[in-house]
Design a protein around this nucleic acid. Structure first.
Lengths: 156, 156
DNA sequence: TATAGATATTTTAATCTTAAAGTATCAGCA
DNA sequence: TGCTGATACTTTAAGATTAAAATATCTATA
């Protein structure tokens, strides 16, 4: 049987299946080839896009994870000398987290490999199709977010 | 700049973004409306598709998670009387996990709500588009898996 | 039968994750 | 100055997750 609701459920299950598959593969690769994890990679990627560093709260904001979560990951990366906490002049509550030179070197290697793994896994999709699907997904995501605003006007 | 590799990377980031968004929403809903979690829901969903129950190892196989992972979730569900462990006649090592009658009732409600949440979130996609995108994603997933077999023939 | 290797599950140690509570600091105002 | 509420971060408790080690049982075979 096929109803619109079931069709959307099946789409979601496909989406989830593919994402988990790729995600799992990336985690394996990061562990085996760089002895690191996806959350650590995500933190370093965010810092890499902001060479001047990010406050802990900004970091948890862009990564969309909790504050406490970032604390632990930052602790472990700092222990290995890949990131460092810098005091914020004028606000003794805040700390800026930024990549160390060693962290920059390490992340550059990881990012290159990361792009390559994804290119390999998604090689069955042409560049044109990839752009098309990405555009479709943007539309889907926007529809989903609009729907939420209707249900929860607090975001306004 | 746009290279095939970057196009695929961007597609992956979109895919991941949408999936995390929907996934997070589902987790929130399960927690707020049913005081449960997605991993618990996943276990119950798998058992629901197999009314006679599944051995622990079969369950971790179906869900593609580790054995130890299922042990903990099953423990907590069993504590609440939603699932039960049944000995396997003729093999004292193995245990079958199955939904209790209470678990069946509870899951039926969760599954209905779950389908509704997804239908709401993906309402911006027509049923026809949903079927089309699902078909596209199957092709993508197959391409990704074929790629892996080439790199790792052990799966043959 | 004894045992060696395979199989099914649980346990353990580490990381990730969140919500909620706790600590320190800041900013505005009486 | 001293208070109050907000802000920035860390800590805590609980669950999820994995790989690897530990247990228990089974199976085949010498």
């Amino acid at each position: 049987m096929s109803t619109p609701s079931k069709d959307r459920l099946r789409l979601w299950l496909r989406l989830l299946g593919l994402t988990r598959h790729v995600d799992g593969h990336l985690r394996d690769k990061l562990r085996l080839e760089f002895k690191t994890t996806l959350p650590r990679f995500d933190v370093m990627a965010a810092l890499s896009r902001h060479p001047e560093g990010l406050k802990m709260s900004q970091l948890s904001g862009v990564l969309r994870v909790s504050n406490g979560n970032v604390t632990g990951i930052a602790d472990r990366l700092a222990e290995e000398g890949l990131v460092e906490r810098v005091p914020v002049p004028g606000d003794r509550r805040a700390m800026i987290l930024r990549l160390t030179p060693a962290g920059n070197v390490e992340f550059a290697q990881q990012a290159t490999a990361h792009e390559g793994w994804i290119n390999d896994m998604l090689h069955g999709i042409s560049a044109a199709d990839a752009r098309l699907m990405a555009a479709q997904l943007i539309a889907v995501a926007q529809a989903a977010e609009n729907k939420e605003e209707i249900n929860d006007p607090s975001h306004a």
